[in-house]
Write a protein that binds this DNA or RNA. Sequence first.
DNA 1: TTGTAGGCGTTATCAT
DNA 2: ATGATAACGCCTACAA
Lengths: 342, 342
Amino acid sequence: MQQVADRASVSISTVSFVVNNTKPVTPETRDRVLRAISELGYRRNTAARALASRKSRILALIYPLLDHRNHHAFVEAAATAAEEHGYNLVLWPLHSDNVTTEITSLIQAGFADGVLLMEVQFDDERVTRLHEAEAPFALIGRTRDLDGIDYVDIDFERTTETAVADLAELGHRDFSLVLEDLSDTPLAGYAPPFRAEETFRRVISERGLKGAVFRVPHRARAISSVADEILRDAPNTTAIIAMHDEAALSLVNALPHRGIAIPQDISVVALATATTLADVTDPPLSTYVAPGHELGRKAAEILIARLEGRGAPAGQALITCLPHKGGTVAPARAPATSPTAP
Amino acid sequence: MQQVADRASVSISTVSFVVNNTKPVTPETRDRVLRAISELGYRRNTAARALASRKSRILALIYPLLDHRNHHAFVEAAATAAEEHGYNLVLWPLHSDNVTTEITSLIQAGFADGVLLMEVQFDDERVTRLHEAEAPFALIGRTRDLDGIDYVDIDFERTTETAVADLAELGHRDFSLVLEDLSDTPLAGYAPPFRAEETFRRVISERGLKGAVFRVPHRARAISSVADEILRDAPNTTAIIAMHDEAALSLVNALPHRGIAIPQDISVVALATATTLADVTDPPLSTYVAPGHELGRKAAEILIARLEGRGAPAGQALITCLPHKGGTVAPARAPATSPTAP
DNA sequence: TTGTAGGCGTTATCAT
DNA sequence: ATGATAACGCCTACAA
């Protein structure tokens, strides 16, 4: 920095002003400084900057090593948004064991200014601890208690409701809902399946429809047998709603082998799914697309607002999944209306 | 730190010695210090540490925002290995435009001590620049010129060769290879498809077999029509080797709709694939599993060796994909031996 | 608009 | 085995 200052014949602080836009500087001096910087290939030292300013300008996205879902769109949007505000987003991979303490350390050690949490559970110890430590954070997902908490989440309630409504409009009356069974995993307590189920049951009953719920673990065996389970336990189902990507794929693949035509006999839709998944099946899967991009951007922005806004009210946002037309949904096949059909 | 020192009645430097294990300390004083630390909840400041020691202890894994593949196993292993050596791995998401300069900045700004690069291309500008800047880095993947370069990579040559050999042993004589077509994408020049194709052609010709190559873009339309293309252009194929996950899935799903039984009529195997993919098809996909875990660990270790070893020779490693038995491979159906069969 | 100087929290060197 | 103290590179009042 001193070298830059010398070369531009200014003081070291002027260089700082230019680099940080912290004080007005005459265009000419600014130019000289900028030129010196690029000629010397100067880059300000992250550590020194963080030390002196007490800000790292880093947002840490805690990146669960559970391989649970595809987060690319989300990460990309969050990183972009962060950058637009002068922050950098890094993904900080953490195993599930000692997560809680490590997360607060990140902030207390000054590595990050704020933390983004995903795969949030109903009652999430990480959230409690971050709150206690008064560490700035935002959630992708929702805990049970949301008082004063910054978050963005998918509106699973609305999405589920819409999915049922859309199918009902096509004449479907007998539904099956397929969910991830995460009990006995570190993700038990992961809220989305619960929210979807609750909404599903409510809507089904409000509309006087029939609905069965299937919980499917992530073991391969279980996934490949959903099809048979549904055919056995809910044989009149004409519409399957799956919030379990692998199961959705598996269903579209397996049902035809059981003599069921998709979508003529049974319609299948996936909930809160990455678009990329849709097209590996034949016919392509109809989905309600997870708004990864919007979630990521909003999450970053909410966190930054917290970081910079002086005690602003909590930023909270729910985003609905929009339908992506595939080929696995059709009107319900007309039921055998008369029991004594010829 | 001063508070800790006071509380333990030692000097600030003793605290440092304890915390860093840099000098011998009497067990008693060490205990006092440790106790003071935990009582006060002290954490050393990342920035100050980095500033004073000129080391950030951060390895940045440049994380391509291209959503090209599933890197979880890799990331997890690399993070674990790094931690074992006292480093932290962060994923640094970068768009493909200005990557090159940003990567060297990371090091020049002292944010990271070293960089891990993935999705490496044959001729990769990032590598050139990092080399010029004398920034420590290691590749997951290989450039064309590997002189003095640290890398780990999948041994695509050997894996492809094995795949053909295994199928040939089952009596298959007529092969199709399905590859990702990445031309016109930022990943054109991504080496794996080329390596696989070259090996495939060589082995096919050495063994006097028949082989056709299909290049499939990532557009949904293209993927879902591979099946038809193969049936049209290579109608006698009995074994399909796919280094394109989506295409592999799609094939297993689509071929039965065309009257082809898998694996009785045609065998399908996927190359360099995450295990998780295997079980969404029916029957489950047979694969040669990408050694994500080994790659991640080795990559981190090689980079750390470079960081700490004084001018050690380049660390280079190739790892072969091992077969994962699924249900999509079977002996070749006996050919209609006599042209005049009854 | 620009310069001066103190301080950010550690590490590392040199004494003791 | 422990302590005193100068860097580390930058930011930021405060002064000019």
